[in-house]
């Protein structure tokens, strides 16, 4: 292919990216550094200086890190069990993908009714005389965490299942004959070989959870423990109509996510390097 044809062929894609991504992205950055009042960094100093606002960073991490850990923590053993395929695998996979297709609002709505004061869950609990008062499950941190795990888990699981079923089964057999039982084989052979998949699925679920918005509003305490960065950005932009401050918070989110993902991959590279004998 000639250079000219290459340029022509890639032009639509490049134009689209510039119009739909590069320009808005650059515009947002510029917007972040041109606050309504004060110097270029005023948005950031104001946000970080306010204790209530600053708490949103902690709130977001407090949801995203446990959510990603739970998803990966559940997905690894399940993928391990299913690495050679199981009966009804297709049905199970379909079942797991359903929450993804339903969307967070639908799930939040369903959870509101099911776990609500007069929902099935509380009615059963009361009928069994386990408690005298309805259990408060919605409008809590846990409800948001559960909703995130429900939507993010399928991604983590399917990604890890792909990784683990790509590992040559003969390696496990070799480890067994060499004296390693199932647990030692899992820890010393499968986990290191799955490490790239584990890091990727952690990063993926972390990013999904980090941007949580509908679940945090509908199921959580949007004024308290689940006031995440997305809510803070929304309030700045659409309640106070300060788009510059909203952009700054969104930019902060991006930087924090990139930093965390960078950390995850750095740890993985240190633990299981391919180059020189690093081993967990």
């Amino acid at each position: 292919m000639t250079f000219r044809r290459g340029v022509l062929l890639s032009a639509p894609a490049v134009l689209f990216l510039v119009a739909a991504f590069v320009y808005p992205f650059a515009y947002g950055i510029v917007l972040s550094f041109t606050p309504k009042s004060g110097g270029p960094l005023a948005n950031f100093t104001v946000f970080l200086g306010d204790e209530f606002q600053r708490a949103a960073i902690g709130n977001t991490f407090a949801l995203a890190v446990p959510a990603a850990l739970i998803c990966v923590g559940l997905a690894v053993p399940l993928a391990y069990r299913m690495r050679r395929g199981i009966r009804g695998e297709r049905a199970l996979t379909a079942l797991l993908v359903v929450p993804v297709t339903l969307g967070p609002v639908f799930i939040a709505d369903a959870m509101l009714f099911y776990f609500g004061p007069v929902g099935w869950f509380n009615r059963v609990v009361e009928a069994l005389h386990l408690t005298s008062e309805p259990v408060r499950l919605i409008h809590t941190y846990s409800a948001v965490l559960l909703a995130i795990v429900l939507t993010a888990f399928p991604f983590a699981f399917l990604l890890l299942l792909g990784y683990i079923s790509g590992i040559d089964p003969v390696l496990e057999r070799a480890a067994h004959v060499l004296g390693a039982g199932p647990w030692v084989t899992f820890r010393r052979v499968l986990i290191p070989l799955m490490a790239p998949g584990i890091a990727t699925s952690f990063a993926l679920t972390f990013v999904l959870a980090f941007g949580v918005f509908p679940s945090a509003v509908l199921l959580g305490e949007p004024g308290g423990s689940t006031r995440v960065l997305a809510i803070a950005a929304y309030q700045a932009a659409y309640e106070k109509f300060d788009f510059s401050a909203g952009s700054a918070i969104a930019l902060l989110m991006g930087v924090l996510q990139l930093g965390t993902i960078g950390l995850v991959f750095a740890v993985r590279a240190r633990l299981y390097s391919g180059a020189r004998g690093g081993k967990g």
């Binding site: 057999r173 004959v177 390693a180 039982g181």
Partner: peptide, 19 residues
């Protein structure tokens, strides 16, 4: 179980641990 037998085994595709 194989890990208790104390045998050694060599496989056709080597089966070395790549990591």
């Amino acid at each position: 179980p194989p890990e208790k037998r104390g045998f050694g085994m060599v496989f056709q595709n080597y089966a070395l641990f790549p990591h």
